[in-house]
Design a protein around this nucleic acid. Sequence first.
RNA 1: GCGCCCGUAGCUCAGCUGGAUAGAGUACCUGACUACGAAUCAGGCGGUCGCACGUUCGAAUCGUGCCGGGCGCGCCA
Length: 562
Amino acid sequence: MKQALANLLSQALQNLVADGTLVEDPKVTPQIDHTKDPSHGDLATNLAMVLAKHAKMSPRDLAARILLAIPENAIVEKTDIAGPGFINFFITQASNTQAVNDIFAAGRRYGYTDIGQGKRVQVEFVSANPTGPLHVGHGRGAAIGDALCRLLKATGWHVHSEFYYNDAGQQITNLALSVQARALGLTPDDAEWPEDGYRGEYITDLAQAYLNKETVSAADRSLSAGGDPHNLDDIQEFAVAWLRREQDADLQAFAVQFDEYFLESSLYAGHDVETTVERLTANGHTYEQDGALWLRSTDFGDDKDRVMRKREGGYTYFVPDVAYHLNKWQRGFERVINEQGADHHSTITRVRAGLQGLDTGIPEGWPEYVLHQMVTVMRDGTEVKLSKRAGSYVTLRDLIDWVGRDATRFFLTARAATSQLTFDIDLALSQSNENPVYYIQYAHARVCSVKRKALDLGEDWQPQAGLAHLDMLKEPEARSLALILGRFPEVVSGAAERLEPHDIANYLREVASEFHSFYNALKLIDSDDQALSLARLALAEATRQVLENGLDLLGVSAPESM
RNA sequence: GCGCCCGUAGCUCAGCUGGAUAGAGUACCUGACUACGAAUCAGGCGGUCGCACGUUCGAAUCGUGCCGGGCGCGCCA
């Protein structure tokens, strides 16, 4: 719709250039927006105001000239010049209800576009260390990251989702030491307990499983415990596999899947880390000082240089990170998007600096980042900070157990990632009008119910039959519902472009709201007027389809009954 | 001290690539079920958009400086 209008306007401009009103195509980007106020029409543009200076005319005069230059068409019913020079467009009935036809034609793929043209994008998210259950922050990352993948797929990108597994380094050693301590009968209160040890209840379960010589099967491996509390390497290998299984189960409960789990240890095994360091050194971006090897990251915008190889010989954490991203680059991804918690913000400059230092033609802004702020969990008006299982934090599993997968997903994606999030357990639990998830799902279930009811009247009460009578949808409630359904493709492509899934959540609430108003104002099934009923049923079914498609982008189910 | 994010209705948040009278939910108040699902709808109340300058036809939106909150500033990850 917007696009069609934009085409008309650009033809109008060409006409004005041709007749000398305008000199040539000026470099301005006029906007076409949906109006807030129905008296302003359905769509409006600021074109005349933007061009006024260039044309040396007043915005309102120019607007009048533009309107005269618009070619004959079947879209615009009438126009208006308003305020300082806005051009308002009232679109025709047929043009408005065309969305319903489009929705029936495209079905499950309505809203999808081919903007990405099949180009490859890699999305990395969650990437939790295998040292404990996933917490609510990982949950937010999982919900947003997965929604991003779905949005990118819907806009024609070839998406590869990935979970980076930090199965090397100090924190894994601490994990192994903690499990070993438990296996040897120590508790976190003992003086001999490892200094940076993990204290959650799961450590106890893990130690017990190890002593019982249990076998764990995770996505990529199956491993049996040796059961020897003095074999630290064996404990470590078992602990990582066990926690991986634990995290897999959490992600499965959240319906999040990854195309690939990438192991940090593979970067050491494959010498990627060494190669990365060698290349940075060969390119002259490193120096030795105080027994350590430094990256001159200040050459690439960092506020200080960073140690790469510590005095004791090990690499700092960001070195394998750079190696990992070089690996991503070599795999040929057009774009790479990393979804992470904002507390890791400082790594961005470091990783990009390392990549620039490799001199392999990686663009400066590569990879892209989506950072999410912290999540606070509230219940009964107070903050929930602890879980039994993990000890010091609320887990993703806790949220799912408390409020269910759909509500968890929705609440975690409904807010802008840049805003801190307060997760209100009581609100998410309420099965009433307070809960936005149910509000949207209810609209979907309601359509399903009405369709069932209509079919009770006979086989000829299929919504599709209403497509022949769409011209009967004249009431304002029907009009504005059709109008918002027609916006869905723009909403999806906009959300994907800005990497902001919460746009979808807001849009779906509006759709549900328009539908409920429509439903309450008009009777959908009237056996005395089948044609009109069918037209309304078709509009309802189109609404259902948009709700289903939109909820799916957020990973939320669209129930046929509740 | 430096960097990033945030500050909009009592509460939770949209709007932020500048546009018309700043929106939604919730809370509170009035109404609507012998109709297809009232988990709904219609209406009302509620705001110096943190503050101050600036940019311009026009600023919640852009710039600068303050104030307040969060996160990060390690040879931890």
